[in-house]
Simulated scan of single mutants.
Amino acid sequence: MTAPATLPAPATSGERTARTPSRRARVVSRVVLALALAWGAYALAGALLAGRWWLWNGLGLAPPVAHLAVPALLVAVELLAGARRLGVLAATGVALLVGLGQTGVVLPAGAPPVDGSAPDAPTAVVVGWNTFSWDQGHDRQEFFAYLRSLDADVYLLQEHQHATPPDDRPRPVDDLDRVRRELPGYTAVAAGEFLTLSRHPVVDSVALRPDDLPPPRTDWPDYWDVRALRTDVRIGGRTVSLYNTHAPDLLNVNRSPFGRDFYEELHDSASRRTSHFTLLQDDLAANPYPVVLTGDLNVQPGSVDLRWYDGLDDAARAGGTVYPGTFPAAFPLWRLDWMLTGDGVEVLRHEVPGTGAEFSTHRPIRATVRFP
């Protein structure tokens, strides 16, 4: 006689919940999937359009670190909801991979050891800084004291200017005598908004001015027409070129995106950027000297605009900062300021000091470089 088959007991509600996601978890999972697909599309658009399409200059402004933070947050929400759907996790992973080149994360290459292997190679401490309207609105003594505290052999400073209310129209500053008193021992070279200060002898300087620009927007043409100042200096018996740069802004934050002026200025800035980038690239290509280039490039990591600097190396790879953000100074989510080197220049140290936020919206870059 055969014993009757034993049927499994009906699953309790608690066991069903453990095996299958709850309705709430499924809803959360669908929301996460939609957000992952949307973010992946945004990251893909950035990879394809940044630096290629002028309109993206007004759209692709997410902080670079968001390309890491957003996928990580979506994965955390999916796991905490208890859904763990493979398709959702895969979509989030793809969004992360697509945006990896735009994260702004710098993997250190390691600084060359200062071991005396090249005892005759000259070194210099170089500081690049967008001062944000110079000393305007600040105590002058404190401002110059901060500059001195950076203790550089060469300062490459942008926005040596003041702003005129109500529209912050830039105007030149005539204070080189004061600069020489506050920073004795430096040779000052100024053009447009740029001020380069060097303890080493200055051999030559040239303000790079494209000849295909539209009319300037204000009565100070040099502000609009000069966006790079090249200064050749003599260091340790050889000539090196220092490029002080500030690319035109990606967009005018004072314009409403609902007005026509916003898009007109966006297109105008993109055109100006191309003209300035082209001239700078041509000058770099013809330059026989070792190069240090720094300034407010107004270029996001991963942007095709970085092609204009092909042949130069990112100095941040010699630093210990994985995310060398510079803007805004108090909480630097964006990396708009860069230091690049070329023709054998070695970066021994690179840092983004977390000081000076009371003077500028940008953090300075300070590097020790060794010339070949």
Rank of each mutant, 00 (worst) to 15 (best):
D139F: 02
Q136R: 07
L157N: 02
A152Y: 00
H160M: 15
D168G: 13
H160Q: 09
D139I: 00
S133G: 06
G137D: 00
L157P: 03
L157H: 04
D139A: 04
H138S: 10
Q158S: 07
R140S: 00
A163V: 08
H138P: 03
E142A: 15
S149L: 02
S149E: 00
H160G: 08
Q141E: 06
A163N: 01
T164S: 07
S133I: 12
T131R: 07
F143Q: 09
T131E: 12
P166E: 08
P166T: 08
T164Q: 05
L147Q: 04
H160R: 15
D168F: 07
L157C: 09
R148K: 00
D153G: 06
A145N: 07
L150A: 06
H162Q: 09
L157V: 03
H160C: 08
P166N: 05
R148A: 02
R140T: 05
E142K: 09
H138W: 05
D135I: 10
F132I: 08
H138C: 08
E159L: 14
Q136L: 06
L157W: 02
D135G: 05
Y146V: 02
L157I: 14
A163C: 05
G137C: 01
A145S: 15
S133F: 12
Q136V: 03
D153M: 05
A163I: 09
H160L: 11
F132H: 14
Q141T: 13
S133P: 06
Q158M: 12
L147A: 02
S133M: 15
S133A: 14
F132N: 12
P166K: 04
L157M: 08
A145R: 09
Q161V: 12
Y155P: 12
T131D: 06
G137E: 00
A163Q: 08
Y155C: 06
F132P: 05
D135Y: 14
L156N: 13
A152N: 01
Q141R: 14
Q158N: 06
D153W: 02
D167W: 03
Y155R: 07
P165A: 02
T131K: 04
S133V: 15
L157Y: 12
Q161C: 06
F143P: 01
F144I: 04
A152H: 13
T164L: 15
D135A: 14
R148Y: 00
H160W: 15
D168K: 14
T164A: 13
Q161M: 15
D153P: 11
D153H: 06
F144Q: 15
D153F: 11
D151G: 11
L156F: 08
A163R: 09
H162N: 12
D167G: 12
A152M: 00
Q161W: 10
D167N: 13
A145D: 07
W134L: 11
H162I: 15
L157R: 03
L150M: 04
V154Q: 11
D153E: 03
Q158W: 11
G137A: 08
R148T: 00
L150R: 10
T164H: 11
Q161I: 15
D139V: 04
Y155G: 01
A145H: 08
R169F: 06
S133C: 09
R140V: 03
T164M: 14
D139P: 00
D167H: 11
E159T: 08
G137R: 01
L147G: 03
Y146Q: 00
F132E: 10
Q161Y: 13
Y146H: 03
D151A: 13
T164Y: 06
Y146S: 05
D168C: 14
R169K: 09
V154A: 09
